[in-house]
Amino acid sequence: MKEIIKTESLTKHYGKVRAVDGISLSVGKGEIYGFLGLNGAGKTTTIRCLLGMVRPTKGNAYLNGKKVTAGNHKLWNDVGYLVEIPYSYPDLTVRENLEIIRRLRFISDPVAVETVIEKLQLGLYQDRKARNLSQGNAQRLGIAKAIMHNPGILLLDEPANGLDPAGIVEIRQLLCDLAFNKGVTVFISSHILGEISRFATRIGIIHEGRLVQESDADQLDKFRKRYLQVNTFNNNGARSKLLEKGFNVDITTNGLLEITGDEVIAHPDIVSALLVNTGYPPTLLKIEEEDLESYFLRTIGMTGGAK
């Protein structure tokens, strides 16, 4: 697959702070690459490097096979972007803000503004000044500016910020349509794995400036921890018996037993039989899968937000 977005050991230091530290990734045509990380992980700096807004300390970024530099402005013909919270000229209306972008992107057809207003459902607000928009509509305006020229590459920094659930679904569908039907390559950052895993084809997790994991989205299940959840009338006693038999058992915060291990997941009946035979018959026995949030936090070496 043709590499549309590529970074090679991309590094950006601000003094002693390593905002981005040797990131190498590539995104093929028509892929949606979910770039996941906590606030301050280096997502925005990476996107700024991809957009030529900051110069990498080391390494390079490429779009459509061409090296990204601030002076290579022809590169941006095929790129739409949204960096952090989108802001627009407060004294100008939605339509006027889009008109400015239309001119700066050399779009000769004035209907492009109408089309994107319709696509982002901004019709009701088109004559409203940007200063009077809600956060959600300001976000829609930012996305409209990014897609108005029908770019082949979209670099979006947390585009779902401020959108209501309906808006999130709508943007997700829009991006899926662009990627899967029109071949647009989408690089999208987020800090919510649950949201990004719904539509990304590939996921990279960044933490403290480093790419700590990269995988196809449909492989996520393979990495997620599975465990057997058990409840009995005496969980402390049951745990002692299970530990004696060499099982790996924890008691969760809600008092349930959590047993991990490939054999347990494959044959939960062994645990069940043992508990019955030792006088601790289970009242609950089910295989659970680690949720995406826990998986994400575990991947970056954190639990519950604390290291």
């Binding site: 402005h73 022809k74 802001y87 407060p90």
Partner: peptide
């Protein structure tokens, strides 16, 4: 101050 500068930096029009 309006934080609109980022919209002007990666355009087909040179800075």
């Amino acid at each position: 101050s309006d934080r609109t500068v980022k919209d002007l930096l990666s355009l087909p029009v040179s800075r």
